[in-house]
């Protein structure tokens, strides 16, 4: 981390706080994923890491590189936009697949197929 030596201390504190909060959210999501009892509860936990956790870590990266280079470096924002757009699609597909599998096996705890 020799490049970080010339960063002002307040900026370093903000970057560290964002980074730790984001990583903490991702870890909390993983803990929740392990602790939940059913599949449908488990799906919710990783969204902690892919919503606010991801935004916090990317924001700290943007801040770090912008201050270090003395110019705005913000291409991380593309990852944030991309993840926000794709997480709903992948989760929705997995949940729908799980639902159709459970329905197929005659699980009574999931809502039945609505007839048109």
């Amino acid at each position: 981390m020799n490049a970080a030596a010339d960063l002002p201390l307040p900026v370093a504190i903000v970057i560290s706080a964002c980074l730790l909060a984001g990583a903490g959210l991702a870890l909390t999501g993983a803990i929740g994923f392990v602790r939940m009892a059913t599949f449908y509860q488990r799906v919710h936990a990783p969204t902690l890491g892919s919503s606010l956790g991801m935004v916090l870590i990317l924001a700290s990266s943007i801040l770090y590189f912008s201050v270090q280079r003395g110019a705005l470096v913000f291409h991380e924002i593309l990852i944030a936009v991309f993840l926000t757009l794709t997480t709903p699609i992948s989760l929705m597909l997995v949940v729908r697949a799980a639902l159709s599998r459970d329905r197929h096996e005659g699980d009574l705890s999931v809502p039945p197929v609505e007839r048109t």
Partner: peptide, 23 residues
């Protein structure tokens, strides 16, 4: 769909366009 899934705690499951019912 993006809003509902991006807020942790709710997940979009399916939408039936014929009846306009979201699960």
């Amino acid at each position: 769909a993006c809003i509902i899934t991006a807020t942790p705690g709710t997940i979009w499951v399916s939408y039936r366009s014929a009846q306009g019912v979201l699960l």
